[in-house]
Structure formats: structure tokens, C-alpha cells
């Protein structure tokens, strides 16, 4: 796993820019869930938000990625570099997400899952296959293309999920407690795997977690979010 850049060729990516949140607030039916939050995450930096469950961490990430349910209201602005992405639909934001569940599409094979992430601009089928295979090789899963995701171990599935996200060439990475479901041994290895890729791709990365180990492993900035409910 040395040359991870192969599936994220710089010439096709948006030039690495920082993620800014400006006065971002999430509320539902006039009850504030999170914010106002102001922060900046530089490319390659992992910014950690810590807080107890129910403090609105996940809602915040959904707001950034644009997938928040329409019952929720979001105010403030989100910038990628100098460009506001606040009004963009999720698919145009180039914000990759990882959850505590791997969420591999159960009806697709491992290879099809990976190729689902590859941008449509790459039209040549062979080229798409090659990209997916290369990614699997690099992640230590050679020959897994046609495997059923359900037959993989938890660690393997988690890695495939990361690869899928990276193959979609995100400009930002959001991590929603992606390590919490793995057992301790695996967790550390996987964390290293993810962080290595974040650095290699110069991705501004936002991590929400309530595990202090996760936070300390990032080596980046940490903020504490309080529960807004009383």
C-alpha cells in the first residue's frame, strides 16, 4: 500500500482546498441541534469533533454532505476553498462519507461497489475495472472483485468502504465514528489505513467520535461539542 495515489490522480481532482464552516447551525422544528459552528480544516488535516451521543454530531455531518432530511433546517455557509457549496446538491459537493457501518450495497459485488464510486467521466470499462482492481490490490484484497460483500470479514468490508469513497474522488472526507464497530486490534490498523489515505490525498477531513483514542490518533485539532438539550 505504498502508491495509493494511483486511484486518485491529481490531474482529475479539484485542487486541494480547505473546508470552512461559517456559523453553521442545524435545527429541527425551531430546536437547535448543533452550532453555531465555525471551523476550518486544511487539506490533509484531520479535525476531530467530540461529544456525547445526541449532541448533533451526525446531523452536522449530514448537513455538510447535503443529505440531511428535509425536516431539518440548516443555516450558515459551507465553503470549499473560497467556493460556497451550501446550495449544491449532495452529488455535486464531492464530499465523501464513512459511517460506523460499512454500508456496502448488498446487491452489488465488491467490484461493482467500488465502480459505483468511480466518476462517470471515466467511460472506458477496462479502465474502470483496472482502477477498482488496483485499489483492491493496494488494500491487500487482490482478486476480491466478484466477491459478495456479505462474505467478507468486518475489517475487509470497512476497507472496501474506504476505497469506494476514495475512488469517487472526494474533496473532503467526513468520518462518522467509522472505527467504533471494529474490535480494538482491528480498529488501530484500520485507523492507520484511513489516516494514511487522508494524508496521501490531501483531504480536509472531519472526524466525529466519542472515543478519545480516535481523537488522539489524528494528531489534529479537537473540539468538544456539548449536548444542546438540557
Amino acid at each position: 500500500m505504498t502508491n495509493t495515489n494511483t486511484f486518485h490522480q491529481p490531474e482529475n481532482s479539484v485542487t486541494a482546498s480547505a473546508l470552512h464552516l461559517q456559523d453553521v447551525c442545524v435545527s429541527v422544528e425551531n430546536t437547535k441541534l448543533a452550532g453555531p459552528i465555525n471551523l476550518t480544516v486544511a487539506p490533509g488535516e484531520i479535525f476531530t469533533i467530540m461529544g456525547p451521543s445526541g449532541c448533533g454530531k451526525s446531523s452536522l455531518l449530514a448537513a455538510i454532505s447535503g443529505t440531511l432530511s428535509t425536516n431539518f433546517k440548516v443555516s450558515g455557509d459551507i465553503f470549499l476553498g473560497s467556493q460556497s457549496i451550501t446550495a449544491l446538491p449532495p452529488e455535486d459537493r464531492h464530499i465523501g462519507m464513512l459511517f460506523q457501518d460499512d454500508l456496502l450495497f448488498p446487491h452489488l459485488s465488491v467490484g461493482e461497489n467500488l465502480k459505483f464510486g468511480i466518476p462517470a467521466a471515466i467511460k472506458n470499462r477496462n479502465e474502470r475495472d483496472a482502477l477498482a482492481e488496483k485499489a483492491l490490490d493496494d488494500a491487500g484484497l487482490p482478486g476480491y472483485m466478484s466477491r459478495d460483500p456479505a462474505t467478507l470479514s468486518g475489517g475487509q468490508r470497512a476497507r472496501v468502504a474506504v476505497l469506494r469513497t476514495l475512488l469517487s474522488r472526494p474533496c473532503v472526507l467526513l468520518l462518522d465514528e467509522p472505527f467504533s464497530k471494529l474490535d480494538v486490534e482491528l480498529r488501530d490498523k484500520f485507523r492507520q489505513f484511513v489516516f494514511r489515505h487522508v494524508k496521501a490525498h490531501h483531504l480536509p477531513t472531519l472526524l466525529v467520535t466519542h472515543d478519545p483514542d480516535d481523537a488522539s490518533a489524528t494528531g489534529g485539532e479537537i473540539i468538544q461539542m456539548a449536548n444542546t438539550f438540557t
Binding site: S65, R93, G96, M97, D101, L103, F105, G117, R164, R169
Partner: peptide, 10 residues
């Protein structure tokens, strides 16, 4: 989340 994830994948 499957649907939303697909969106975040572009």
C-alpha cells in the same frame, strides 16, 4: 443511508 451514501459518492 444507502441512498445518501450513493449521493456522496457523486
Amino acid at each position: 443511508r444507502f441512498f445518501n451514501l450513493a449521493l456522496t459518492l457523486g
